[in-house]
Design a protein around this nucleic acid. Sequence first.
DNA 1: TTGTAACCGAGACGGTACGTCGCGTCTTGCT
DNA 2: AGCAAGACGCGACGTACCGTCTCGGTTACAA
Lengths: 232, 232, 232, 232
Amino acid sequence: MQSRTRSVRAGRPRSAAADAAILAATRAALVELGWSKLTLGDVATRAGVAKTTLYRRWAGKSELVVDAVAGLFDELRLPDRGSLAADLEGVVLQFARILARPEAQSGLMAVIAEATRDEALRNRIRASIVDRQKRLVLEGRARAQSRGELPREPDPEEAARTADLIFDMVAGTVVHRTLVSAEPADEAWVRHFTRVLLTGLRSGGPPEPSPLPRNPGGREGGTARAEGDSGD
Amino acid sequence: MQSRTRSVRAGRPRSAAADAAILAATRAALVELGWSKLTLGDVATRAGVAKTTLYRRWAGKSELVVDAVAGLFDELRLPDRGSLAADLEGVVLQFARILARPEAQSGLMAVIAEATRDEALRNRIRASIVDRQKRLVLEGRARAQSRGELPREPDPEEAARTADLIFDMVAGTVVHRTLVSAEPADEAWVRHFTRVLLTGLRSGGPPEPSPLPRNPGGREGGTARAEGDSGD
Amino acid sequence: MQSRTRSVRAGRPRSAAADAAILAATRAALVELGWSKLTLGDVATRAGVAKTTLYRRWAGKSELVVDAVAGLFDELRLPDRGSLAADLEGVVLQFARILARPEAQSGLMAVIAEATRDEALRNRIRASIVDRQKRLVLEGRARAQSRGELPREPDPEEAARTADLIFDMVAGTVVHRTLVSAEPADEAWVRHFTRVLLTGLRSGGPPEPSPLPRNPGGREGGTARAEGDSGD
Amino acid sequence: MQSRTRSVRAGRPRSAAADAAILAATRAALVELGWSKLTLGDVATRAGVAKTTLYRRWAGKSELVVDAVAGLFDELRLPDRGSLAADLEGVVLQFARILARPEAQSGLMAVIAEATRDEALRNRIRASIVDRQKRLVLEGRARAQSRGELPREPDPEEAARTADLIFDMVAGTVVHRTLVSAEPADEAWVRHFTRVLLTGLRSGGPPEPSPLPRNPGGREGGTARAEGDSGD
DNA sequence: TTGTAACCGAGACGGTACGTCGCGTCTTGCT
DNA sequence: AGCAAGACGCGACGTACCGTCTCGGTTACAA
């Protein structure tokens, strides 16, 4: 009978405290050193843990940082501020504030870069970070629908497509603002952004087959100086 | 005597061919290996160049990759397809196609990650990559205004703010779709996205205290409290 | 097996069996891997024993291997073949055959190397291995003396000195032949070696101040064939 | 034409000083730490050299120590003291003194132990250490023959066999005395040993087919004479 | 034509971090 | 209380790149 028990758990169990210490040390090292100068040996030292212990739990730097960064997003909540617009603003602002923290900045882009070459890592990121965020979008929409602020989408596929788009727009735009443009995503900016987004969503139905306005008569004069004439 | 002579350029000049070979080798290495496994020694070997030659021209991996990736965006053009919507679609699609290439995926996010800790690198990225893209947004708006599709914004500051927002939304969303969600930014998606974006922009004026344009349910008051005062 | 019969006391029922299993596993590992690649974890696994159990009984790799190798020499016996020469040949051959086994080769030299820096280990080796061998020399001499083949040495110190020398010559030469010269110590070689050794011993008395033979002219016949006659 | 030159020597040449520094550091580390606690990282540090430099020149600890120890035997010389006995004593004493040094003790046995499992290492030891010593035996015999102290052996195979035996006896006995018995191989001992050895050799002819005397009656007088009064 | 100065390839150098392995110790739960 | 299982802190391993530094040899311009 013990053969099963044995295979399940024999020997000294892994220290739960070590996991927490390592993740905290990773975040601290990200703040101080950033991704590229973060070394696993240093993280182990900070955590008061042997390097081997670290490698027993994570396959490498990328996996470790994904988990460390994922923790930052745990605090994301969907506030109930009474309206879709207000709720959205609140969530975006929370998201922006997390991204403003150096440990998120340093780590997040780097693991995304790594993930472009690593299917498993991409899945890990999705499971640990992305899906957790995306859930907020779905919840927010459901709430808005129950409030009557948004119509209920009958086609589930279209609903998913739109949710994905919203999510990419929100997360992508905030990330780009923060990390590429390197401008603060403060309250005023968030208000501006969410207004544009919501306006677009309220009117934006399913994509239509003929997107080209097909301007009669051709170009209005303003285009004149444009270089594009040769183009398509 | 030579020793005192200020010869503007004495000695053997740098090989122009080497630069091109190195950048091409860098892109090839990015495709094959990705950022993290790309090594400067390997790039030098591929380019048929000594490591020293490489270090004479670039300070390190990041700078080299910025230049190598920047070249990819040279082909970005603002097409004149007759309408703002069509032009926007065209640009976004071009951008998406560049981002679909592995050398862009691997390199771009990584240098952005590096740049979070390196002011000089951030400036280099802005100068080489970002500003070149942002110019398209400005050109596109100017063309749309001259066509009469968009009103002329009287406040230059507000105009700049909106241009930045558009840029962050476009670039950020496409990047997020491609790299994080790892879904193809194909024509259908681009059409969907640009329609939402344009709709938002056509109605989105300067930020207002009450951003809810119409609420079918009729709860006007809720918006008020939801806004800034309550905070969180 | 045995643990089932007596469930009352869960003491150390395997203690005796474990020792044998561990030593056998050690020898097996020596054969397969040699000293430097032998690991205690592997030995424990082979013996079906926990590493802890192993460490309770031996302080480390060296001590364990000393005991494992010592067992090989248990089979050494002083045969009675009727003459000193024949007895010596027999013992040397036995010794050579043990040294030809890979577990002896791998282990013995290594622990001797370790012992150069470790007094306790040196003593352990002496007690477990060396003295057991040296006893054969003493027994052999006693037997030869009782046969009348060797005179009885009146000075006990000199007797000890000579016994030590014989031992070093026998063991050292066989070891060197086997491990350094890496040539087989087969029957023919043993015969050659023991004849030289015995001849030397029969004539070799206490050390003298003037070792120069000083006979440039030629060899006195007596010395030349002092012992050869006996054989044929 | 440089293509040939290039392949022969291109790039920065290896530092000759580094080799010497590394070997000296290795010997120093052997003295202080002994074989098992000697680490290549430590050797590199002592030599003021990077670990990589060390690994570029030697495949591992064993190879390095072989070279380091081989240097110790460079000082071995065949002295001309006028007689075979005196020459032999001189060489053996030199050998004993080298073996008395801790760097030789620590290293030599260990690499021999390693060599039992490593053909290449065995060859390296033979080339660097053993053959150099064996040459002295051959030189010594030639000199003794020219002096008339030893007969010229007509059969070259038998000559080689005997030289090998002498070598194994000399080296093996001294090593065993020093490292296993852990007794000093001082002048008195060397005199005792060499006298026994030389006596054995002077009378020891080629091995004979029937070595077992098998005379149950035992032997008498002739043997007895050899002992006390020292024929030579 | 000849200097001379900066270039070029090759590759060794002192370092740093990697990810792995073995050591000997320390929990666990089972018997 | 001893056992197997196995996680733990420690520290060396051998490898891979880093960015720098010789090397011998090659341009290209100036004297």
